[in-house]
């Protein structure tokens, strides 16, 4: 009973509503609204705070113009005076996240495909378990050894170094998502190609890969979000040349206390890109998360 459908037709739920009276429907909508508000509320509060000066930020006021005079000070500082640094850190974040995403999905697709299609002496299940266990390890445990290791490779405070770190952390997720996708994927099509004399690589590239686009997208967006949000390793390994944007978010807590307006501004900037991406590839995320967690 736990097998999920191969595609999740979320647009057409199968369960018809109970239509005896209009009341449940109103209640349902009300509940949906409440849930939506619960989700949006922190974002809304951050938006309001980002238009407040430090003095106003510490007053419980909600409505601009009526309750407080909105100020562009924070946005101005972030995009104007500090614009260069913002752009630099965002650039790093994008390079690191995109790099890690590409690498992790590339390697994850190959390995995931392998685990779904071939048999290995050591036991496929054991390999999958081992890959999965990587997600359970607390990253703090390995920070210093990791640092020493990266130092040997002369990759401290470089974008390639941070790509490598983030690839390592996101790869297990990519492998699991892709493995599940290929496991559900009918083998018959590939076997037909095999009969035509194609090599395994040709089959993979020409038959399997094109059909895997949805899962690939899902894996990619999840890896991207993980890499984009990483702070702990970056704060120690990339304070200078490869500084990502999460670093700037953390730095709103200064020797003179937390600057709330900046904080809200930077938080919104940090959240915007992955959230916008997530809205664009909505359907694939649902697939990806489902595959990755329920099945593997």
């Amino acid at each position: 009973m736990t097998t999920l459908p191969k595609s999740l037709p979320l647009e057409t739920p199968r369960l018809a509503p109970i239509r005896r009276s209009p009341l449940p429907r109103i209640l349902l909508w009300l509940a949906v609204m409440v849930v939506t508000l619960w989700v949006l509320y922190p974002f809304a509060w951050a938006v309001i705070t980002s238009f407040k000066t430090q003095r106003q930020a510490l007053e419980p006021t909600f409505v601009p113009f009526l309750q407080f005079q909105p100020s562009l000070e924070n946005w101005g500082a972030e995009l104007g005076l500090g614009g260069r640094e913002t752009a630099f850190a965002l650039g790093n974040s994008i390079m690191i996240s995109v790099g890690a995403t590409l690498l992790a999905t590339l390697l994850g697709t190959l390995t995931g495909y392998a685990l779904a299609r071939f048999r290995y002496g050591i036991g496929n299940r054991n390999i999958v378990s081992w890959v999965m266990s990587q997600r359970f390890l607390p990253p703090v445990a390995t920070l210093i050894p990791f640092f020493l290791f990266m130092q040997r490779l002369k990759l401290i405070d470089t974008v390639p170094g941070m790509i490598l770190v983030n690839t390592t952390f996101t790869l297990p997720f990519a492998i699991l998502i892709m493995r599940d996708f290929f496991a559900d994927f009918p083998e018959e099509i590939e076997e037909a190609a095999l009969v035509d004399g194609a090599s395994p690589l040709q089959i993979f590239l020409r038959v399997a890969l094109p059909l895997a686009t949805p899962a690939l997208t899902a894996a990619a967006i999840i890896c991207f979000a993980f890499a984009w949000n990483e702070y702990l390793f970056a704060s120690v390994m990339a304070p200078k040349d490869a500084k990502p944007y999460t670093f700037l978010v953390a730095s709103t807590s200064t020797v003179r206390g937390v600057h709330f307006g900046y904080l809200a501004t930077r938080m919104l900037i940090a959240i915007t890109l992955p959230v916008v991406l997530s809205l664009f590839v909505q359907r694939y995320i649902v697939r990806g998360l489902t595959l990755g967690a329920v099945k593997g």
Partner: peptide, 8 residues
Amino acid sequence: QAGARGGI
């Protein structure tokens, strides 16, 4: 860290 116009 406190930025180009921040303390210290």
